[in-house]
C-alpha cells in the first residue's frame, strides 16, 4: 500500500449521469426496433423491392438530378455572388433581384410553374431564328432541373458571397499589387480561400438537394420516391415501399457526407488548426 502523500493513485471521476443516460437511450432504441418488428410491416416486401428495376432507375434519376441541379446551382451561385459584390450597379442590382425572387417562391410552386410554362408560352425560341413547342422542350427532366437548379443558385449565391467576404482584404490587395486583374485574383487567390467557408454549407445544401428531388415527382419526374409510389399504387404496400425509398436516401446521403469530409480537408490545406479539433 502506497501512502506517500506526493505519490498517491489518481482515481478518475465517475460519470454516473452518462451511464444512466446511455441506459435510457438504449432502452428507447430497443422499444422502437421492437415496435417496428411486431408492427404491420411486411419486411420481406421491403427486401424484395429494394433493388427492383424501377427503384434502381428512380435512384439513378435522383442522383443524376441532384448532381446536375447542384452543378447548375453552384454555377449560378458563384456568378451571382460575384455580380452582387461588383462595383457595377447594374450587375449588383440584377443579382439582388435574382436572389430576392427565387428565394421567395416555394420550390414546389417553381417546379409547377416551369412544368406548366406551355400554358403561358406555347412556343419558345429566338424570334426569326428558331422556335420549338414548349411542351416538347419542358419535359419533366428539364422542368425539374430548372426549378431545382435556379432556386438553388439563389441560396448558393448567398453562401458564396459569405465565403468571398470572409477572405481578408489584404489578400485582395496583395493580389492586385502583383498586377492581377479582378477575375484573375478571384479565381486564383480569393475563391480557393473562400471555398473553406463555402464547402460545409454547400455540402449541407447538396444533401438537402438530394431530398428536394423528391418534390420533382409532382412534375412526373421518375425519381426514387416517384418509383416507389408507382409501385404501391399497384400493390398497396405503402409503408414497405416508402421504407425502400428511405433506405436509399440514407445510403446516398451517407456517401455524400463522407465525400464532403474529404473535400473540406482538401480546402483546409495551409490552415493551422489547434490539435483539439
Amino acid at each position: 500500500m502506497n501512502t506517500d502523500p506526493d505519490n498517491l493513485v489518481i482515481v478518475p471521476r465517475r460519470h454516473y449521469g452518462r451511464l444512466i443516460g446511455a441506459a435510457l437511450v438504449l432502452l428507447a432504441l430497443v422499444a422502437i426496433v421492437h415496435a417496428f418488428v411486431v408492427g404491420q410491416i411486411e419486411w420481406s416486401y421491403v427486401g424484395r423491392f429494394l433493388t427492383v428495376r424501377s427503384i434502381m432507375e428512380g435512384l439513378a434519376n435522383t442522383i443524376v438530378m441532384a448532381v446536375l441541379a447542384m452543378v447548375l446551382g453552384l454555377a449560378l451561385g458563384v456568378l451571382f455572388a460575384i455580380m452582387r459584390l461588383s462595383a457595377n450597379p447594374v450587375l449588383s442590382t440584377t443579382a439582388l433581384g435574382y436572389i430576392w425572387f427565387f428565394r421567395a417562391i416555394p420550390v414546389l410552386l417553381q417546379l409547377l410553374l416551369w412544368y406548366n410554362l406551355a400554358l403561358v408560352f406555347p412556343t419558345i425560341g429566338i424570334p426569326g431564328i428558331a422556335s420549338w413547342k414548349t411542351v416538347d422542350v419542358m419535359t419533366p427532366f428539364v422542368a425539374a432541373l430548372l426549378g431545382l437548379g435556379i432556386q438553388q443558385g439563389a441560396f448558393t449565391a448567398e453562401v458564396v458571397r459569405a465565403g468571398l467576404l470572409s477572405v481578408d482584404q489584404g489578400q485582395y490587395e496583395a493580389a492586385q499589387t502583383l498586377g492581377m486583374t479582378r477575375l484573375q485574383l478571384l479565381r486564383r487567390i480569393i475563391m480557393p480561400q473562400a471555398m473553406r467557408v463555402i464547402v460545409p454549407p454547400v455540402g449541407n445544401e447538396f444533401i438537402g438537394m438530394v431530398k428536394l428531388t423528391s418534390l420533382a415527382s409532382v412534375v412526373q419526374f421518375a425519381e426514387v420516391l416517384h418509383s416507389a409510389q408507382s409501385i404501391y399504387y399497384a400493390n398497396s404496400r405503402v409503408i414497405e415501399l416508402l421504407l425502400v425509398a428511405a433506405f436509399w436516401y440514407l445510403i446516398v446521403v451517407t456517401i455524400l457526407s463522407l465525400i464532403q469530409g474529404r473535400v473540406e480537408a482538401y480546402f483546409e490545406r495551409g490552415v493551422a488548426r489547434s490539435p483539439g479539433r
Partner: peptide
C-alpha cells in the same frame, strides 16, 4: 493592373496567400 506590375509592395501584415 499593368501599371502595378512594375511596382512591388510589402505589407505590414505580410498578406501571403495562405493556401499556397
Amino acid at each position: 493592373a499593368r501599371q502595378r506590375r512594375s511596382i512591388g509592395m510589402v505589407f505590414q501584415r505580410f498578406n501571403l496567400f495562405p493556401h499556397l
